[in-house]
């Protein structure tokens, strides 16, 4: 990271940094539309149909244009600087974490050897920006949403990190590029790809725990307590409007993609093609990687329209008395498996 940062010229850095940004923006436009379509289809509706012709594909663009034009309302009693700053900090945190995601076999924002650790560290700032937004709004719903979010994210960071650690125990490297490269090939039972999810039964358990935790980390149903619209209006976003609110939305979707891509990297072979050498190469690897990530995002949306929301105490119960012990036991078991085999 430092080598790159100090010796490449600034424009190259900017171009390099723009690639994940473009991916995030395009993804957010598609994902918001897709979320509404998935919601519609699951409820036997059609979802947005009118903007842009085929299945309302331009709906998110229209929404974005609308949001740009909206007034930027700041409540009188809000803490002005923090109120204005929080959405940008939230997006910055989730955007910065994309630096260590290996998007393709030949592209990674920053090939540092603390990869996953950096990602987890940077995303922990998200929590703080949510508390910041919740407190600065000077609104009870916002504050409650912010506090819930903080409690939730701090709690669920533990099982997330513990399950990431199980994979790290297997790979022995924090660098996500190395983690991905270790999953190349199709050797399991002769045809299955060497993905960690197939390598070891305990890693399957780890994936289940990891997936539940990232649902909570990215505030998705059934753990969307910070913005539960039926009780807290919109949680920490209540007072936001226009582009600042759009930044929150973007950050949420970026976070969702980030954690899904992390899951795809850790458990589903990252940019590796499921068919060995067939359809591999820089472009195809990007395709496979995004496909895996977006499938996980789809599962998140699918779960959103299936399950109801948990209560706060149930949320904490699931985390502290089920997921955390289970993930640590699982960590030990994976380590034992690695020692034995």
């Amino acid at each position: 990271m430092t080598q790159n940062l100090l010796h490449i010229n600034p424009i190259a850095i900017l171009v390099h940094a723009a690639i994940p940004l473009v991916i995030i923006l395009v993804y957010a436009l598609v994902a918001i539309w897709a979320e509404r379509k998935v919601a519609g289809f699951i409820q036997d509706r059609l979802g947005p149909m009118r903007v842009g012709g085929w299945h309302g594909w331009a709906q998110s663009i229209a929404d974005l244009l609308k949001l740009i034009q909206k007034e930027d309302i700041i409540p009188n009693d809000a803490s002005r600087f923090l109120f204005k700053f929080a959405p940008f900090m939230m997006f910055a945190a989730s955007y910065a974490a994309f630096a260590v995601i290996p998007f393709s076999s030949s592209y990674i924002g920053s090939n540092i050897n603390i990869g996953v650790f950096y990602l987890l560290a940077v995303t922990s700032v998200l929590t703080l920006s949510i508390i910041m937004a919740g407190w600065a709004s000077n609104n009870k719903w916002s504050l409650l949403g912010g506090m819930r979010s903080a409690a939730q994210m701090v709690s669920y960071e533990v099982p997330t990190i513990a399950t990431v650690l199980t994979v790290i125990v297997v790979t022995g490297s924090l660098n996500l590029m190395t983690v991905t490269e270790m999953q190349s090939g199709n050797d399991i039972l002769g045809f299955l790809p060497n993905w960690f999810i197939f390598q070891n039964p305990f890693l399957l358990v780890a994936f289940v725990i990891f997936f539940i935790s990232i649902l909570a980390e990215s505030h998705r149903v059934p753990f969307d307590l910070p913005e539960s619209e039926s009780e807290l209006v919109a949680g920490y976003q209540t007072e936001y409007s226009g582009m600042r609110w759009a930044m929150f939305m973007l950050a949420e979707y970026a976070d969702m993609l980030l954690l899904s891509l992390l899951g795809a990297t850790l458990f589903f072979g990252g940019w590796n093609s499921p068919f060995g050498d067939f359809m591999s190469g820089p472009f195809w690897s990007f395709f496979w990687f995004m496909l895996k990530g977006l499938l996980l995002v789809f599962v998140m949306m699918w779960i959103r329209w299936t399950l109801p929301r948990y209560r706060v105490d149930q949320l904490m119960h699931i985390c502290w008395s089920i997921l955390i012990p289970l993930s640590f036991i699982n960590l030990v078991l994976v380590a034992l498996w690695e020692v034995i085999f």
Binding site: N113, Y118, A121, V122, L128, W135, M147, E157
Partner: peptide, 28 residues
Amino acid sequence: LLYADFLAATQLLVYVGGILILILFGVM
């Protein structure tokens, strides 16, 4: 900037992501 990337990430994770949130919780 001092090439201590692990330390930097730890600083973020422990102080910003952990202790500071606890401080805020305590205050609130």
